[in-house]
């Protein structure tokens, strides 16, 4: 297959995949009376900017909070999960199997039960409605995933590589820092990516632990349009669109950087 044909196939696949996203954008521009038109309008013919007007007036400050929470979660997750994954994969500690087992099970606890448990802890610690509190809570979704992914990927690192470093007189910490981490770039990116995505789209923790704060993430902004009896759907969808634009740009940039890094690595081999 020639490259241009692949690009065309890729474009088609992406279009199919993103159709629901398009539909969301479509609804965000639609007037109330056209929302359930039968047959549905494929384009917002008599579009309205009402939804966006509401969002741009009210939601922009929250984007910053979301960004901060997302990046904080990424940092915390990698710091906690990378060494743990390394230890499980290479040092094979006593109870390592049990630990990864607990991590697996931990992910089964329904988010709302976790959130209710945290509420009591946070209230006593006084970190309700704070950004660090939310980062800590969001990291609990990503850390088990991170540890398992790091374990799976790091067990693929040849033992000779780490042994060579030890022979050179490097301690475990140094080996980890200057040998293991650099070769695990792929898994770090994967874990960071998901940590970011989870934190960005989290709803349950944000609403339970940060519902009343001044620094609310943008997902909670959607609540402003879910009234007691009525939902303002164009504004809800508009919030989601506005919230996903900066994150999408970030993703595309991040992936550029990753692709470059990978190719550079390949040439060195």
């Amino acid at each position: 297959m020639r490259s241009p044909i692949k690009t065309v196939i890729g474009l088609v696949l992406t279009a199919v995949m993103l159709f629901p996203v398009y539909w969301m954008i479509n609804v965000s521009f639609t007037r109330d009376q056209d929302m359930r038109a039968d047959p549905p309008h494929l384009f917002p013919v008599d579009g309205t900017l009402e939804g966006y007007r509401a969002v741009l007036d009210q939601q922009l400050p929250y984007l910053g909070t979301s960004l901060l929470v997302g990046l904080g979660t990424v940092a915390l997750t990698v710091v906690l999960a990378a060494p743990a994954g390394y230890a499980l994969a290479k040092l094979r500690p006593v109870g390592g199997g049990a630990l990864s087992f607990v991590l697996l099970i931990a992910q089964m606890i329904p988010g709302i039960i976790m959130a209710m448990g945290f509420y009591a802890i946070y209230l006593n610690l006084g970190v309700l409605n704070s950004i660090p509190g939310l980062i800590l809570a969001d990291s609990t979704i990503a850390v088990p995933f991170g540890v398992l992914i790091f374990t799976a990927f790091m067990s693929g690192i040849p033992d000779e590589l780490t042994q060579a470093a030890v022979v050179d007189g490097a301690g475990r910490l140094r080996t980890f820092w200057s040998v293991v981490l650099p070769v695990s770039r792929n898994s770090i990116v994967t874990v960071s990516l998901f940590a970011f995505l989870w934190a960005w789209s989290d709803f349950i923790f944000a609403s339970t632990l940060d519902g009343g704060g001044d620094h609310r993430p943008i997902t909670l902004g959607i609540y402003q349009y879910i009234g007691n009896n009525n939902q303002q759907w164009n504004a809800i969808m508009a919030t989601a669109v506005v919230a996903s634009i900066p994150a999408t740009i970030l993703l595309i940039i991040a992936q550029r950087y990753v692709a470059a890094g990978v190719t550079a690595g390949a040439i060195k081999d």
């Binding site: 009376q33 359930r36 009525n230």
Partner: peptide
């Protein structure tokens, strides 16, 4: 939901809609 049912009514195709006082503004 009551909102969805209101949107259907708002499309102009329906004769009746069972809905609440809160829809007066809409």
């Amino acid at each position: 939901t009551q909102t969805t049912s209101w949107q259907e009514f708002a499309s102009g195709d329906y004769a009746f809609s069972e809905n609440g006082t809160w829809q007066l503004g809409n």
